[in-house]
C-alpha cells in the first residue's frame, strides 16, 4: 500500500503524486503569504492612535523563538533521515522533539500576543495591528497544523504503523514544516529586524 514503493514506475515523470502535489501546494502558499506580508508592509506605518511596530516589537524575545523554529527544521530532517535508515526509535524521538519545538514557538507567539494586547495593541486597534495579527496568526495556524500532523505521525509510530516504507509521508510533512520555517525566516527579517516605524 505504500505508494513510494509503487509510484516510481507508475508515474510519467517518476515523481510520486503526493510529493509533486505538496510542492505545487507550496508554490501556491508563496502567493498566500506574499499577499499577507504585502498587506502588512502597506500598513506597518498606519498605527492610528495605537502602538507603533517600532515601539512594541521585542527583538531579543522574537530572536529566541525564531531560533527555536529554525532548529525544529534540523530535528525534522533528522526524523526523516532516521526513518529512511529504518531507525524507528530515533525517528520517534526527533518527531516528538520537532513537535515540542514547534509548540514552544507557538507558546512564544501566544506570550507575544498577550503582551502586545496588554500594551494596547488589540486586533482592531489600527490597520497595522490587524495586519500584524493576521499575518503572524496565519503563520501560527500553519505551525499548529504542522504540530498536529507531527503528533499524528508520532502516535502512529507508537502503534507500530510508521515504518521505513512510509518515510515519504514523513518527508512530505517535513516539506510543509520546512516551508513554514522559511516563511518565518522571511517574516523575522522583513517584519522584525528591518527597522519599523515608531510613533
Amino acid at each position: 500500500m505504500s505508494d513510494s514503493a509503487t509510484t516510481d514506475h507508475a508515474t510519467t515523470t517518476g515523481m510520486s503524486h503526493n510529493k509533486l502535489a505538496m510542492w505545487v501546494f507550496l508554490g501556491s502558499e508563496c502567493l498566500l503569504f506574499g499577499a499577507l506580508i504585502s498587506t502588512y508592509l502597506v500598513y506597518r506605518g498606519r498605527f492610528a492612535d495605537g502602538p507603533a511596530p517600532g515601539d512594541i516589537f521585542d527583538i531579543p524575545f522574537t530572536s529566541v523563538s525564531s531560533f527555536v523554529l529554525l532548529m525544529s527544521s534540523l530535528t525534522m530532517v533528522l526524523a526523516l533521515s532516521a526513518l529512511q535508515r529504518g531507525d524507528i526509535r530515533n525517528n520517534r524521538l526527533w518527531l516528538l522533539t520537532t513537535a515540542l519545538l514547534g509548540s514552544l514557538f507557538i507558546g512564544g507567539q501566544v506570550y507575544e500576543f498577550t503582551t502586545f494586547f496588554r500594551e494596547g495593541l488589540g486586533y482592531t486597534t489600527s490597520p497595522f495591528s490587524s495586519a500584524f495579527f493576521t499575518l503572524t496568526g496565519f503563520h501560527g495556524v500553519h505551525v499548529s497544523i504542522g504540530i498536529l500532523m507531527l503528533m499524528s505521525m508520532f502516535i502512529s509510530s507508537l502503534r507500530g504503523t510508521l515504518r521505513k516504507e512510509h518515510s515519504e509521508t514523513v518527508e512530505i510533512i517535513g516539506l510543509y514544516w520546512h516551508f513554514v520555517d522559511i516563511i518565518w525566516i522571511f517574516i523575522f527579517t522583513v517584519i522584525y529586524l528591518v527597522p519599523s516605524p515608531t510613533s
Binding site: D3, H17, N18
Partner: peptide, 17 residues
C-alpha cells in the same frame, strides 16, 4: 494496473493502520 496504483494514496499521510 496502469496509473491506478499510482492513484493510490490521496493524502500525504499514507495509510498507517
Amino acid at each position: 494496473h496502469g496509473g491506478d496504483e499510482a492513484a493510490a494514496d490521496t493524502t500525504e499521510e499514507a495509510p498507517v493502520v
